[in-house]
């Protein structure tokens, strides 16, 4: 009986591995595709230049050098990461349809959710590596600007890391949104939709303020509905900036932000898989 249960357990594990292997294969292929693209390296070099430019600019200011380096460095990383997330994400599914490489995938025992998840994880991993590499350069410029005491430097590295982790979480949401849009629209439209989604995400708090101004209850409800449906990225940005300058949020807010973004990503990926399931190949 015990042996039977053990063999049943092995079967379930093997089945799970069988379901995940195509996901990993697609993720690894997407990672190779993005990481072997020369454009990504160009952006990376650009981010490094921005970091060093911050160093030069910082040296011209009095007493604000570290702040300038951190602001400019973070701006470079989040902007370059965002550009890659939007443009690569918007092409994730469409490129497979346009180049007809999807025929290779969907004539194999691969389900649409495996394809969507694999593409997403591949790009997410690529961005993680890229952000980590850019973070190394930012840390280096911070060290060059103010080597200071080891303890203080270690603390700064922790702040940079935590802040970049939130930047990465935001980019994970942007990739999911771009991938979702790319399941049913052209890359140009996906880019437009994703940028709009991102922009709205940073302005949703205004919707709540707006709802208070409406006297019409239907408009009030609509503004509230949009506020609760669209992502709220403003809190994330505020928290990220606070961390950068040494103010860690309480654990409740950290858990809330992570759970909020992860839930959003899951919903977008599920929707992408549903659209792919319904869509007929060209």
């Amino acid at each position: 009986m015990e042996h039977c249960a053990e063999s049943q357990g092995q079967k379930v594990t093997a089945k799970k591995a069988g379901l995940l292997l195509p996901v990993f294969a697609i993720a690894s292929n997407t990672f190779k595709e993005v990481s072997r693209d020369k454009v990504v390296y160009t952006f990376f070099v650009f981010a490094v230049i921005i970091s060093f430019f911050g160093l030069a600019l910082g040296s011209l200011s009095v007493g604000q050098d570290l702040r300038i380096i951190l602001d400019l460095g973070m701006f470079g990383i989040s902007t370059i990461g965002g550009i890659i997330a939007v443009f690569a994400g918007a092409n994730l599914v469409y490129k497979e349809l346009e180049k007809k490489t999807c025929y290779l995938i969907f004539t194999k025992p691969v389900r649409p959710w495996q394809f969507i998840l694999g593409k997403y994880l591949g790009l997410a991993l690529c961005l993680l590596v890229l952000i980590a590499a850019m973070a190394v350069f930012l840390t280096l410029t911070v060290y060059i600007a103010d080597p200071g005491q080891l303890l203080v430097f270690k603390e700064r590295v922790l702040f940079i890391g935590a802040s970049l982790l939130l930047t990465y979480l935001e980019l994970l949401l942007i990739i999911a949104a771009a991938e979702f849009f790319s399941t049913f629209s052209s890359p140009i439209m996906s880019v437009v939709f994703t940028i709009a989604f991102w922009f709205i995400g940073h302005s949703t708090a205004s919707l709540q303020d707006l709802s208070k101004l409406f006297t019409n209850s239907a408009l009030q409800q609509l503004a509230n509905f949009l506020y609760w449906t669209l992502p709220d990225l403003k809190t994330l940005t505020q928290t990220r900036s606070a961390i950068m300058y040494g103010q860690f949020p309480n654990s409740e807010l950290s858990i809330y932000l992570t759970a909020y973004l992860v839930s959003y990503v899951i919903i977008l990926l599920v929707l992408s898989a549903m659209v792919s399931e319904k869509r007929e190949l060209p």
């Binding site: 294969a25 697609i26 072997r36 180049k99 007809k100 490489t101 025929y103 290779l104 025992p109």
Partner: peptide, 29 residues
């Protein structure tokens, strides 16, 4: 249990021939 060779096969130009076959095999588990 099916193999398919499309007309003008579609490839990932960033992969080598061996990587392409490995990817195809992995899709079959």
């Amino acid at each position: 249990r099916i193999g398919f060779l499309p007309e003008s096969p579609y490839f990932y130009s960033h992969l080598t021939g061996r990587e392409y076959l490995t990817f195809t095999g992995q899709l079959f588990g």
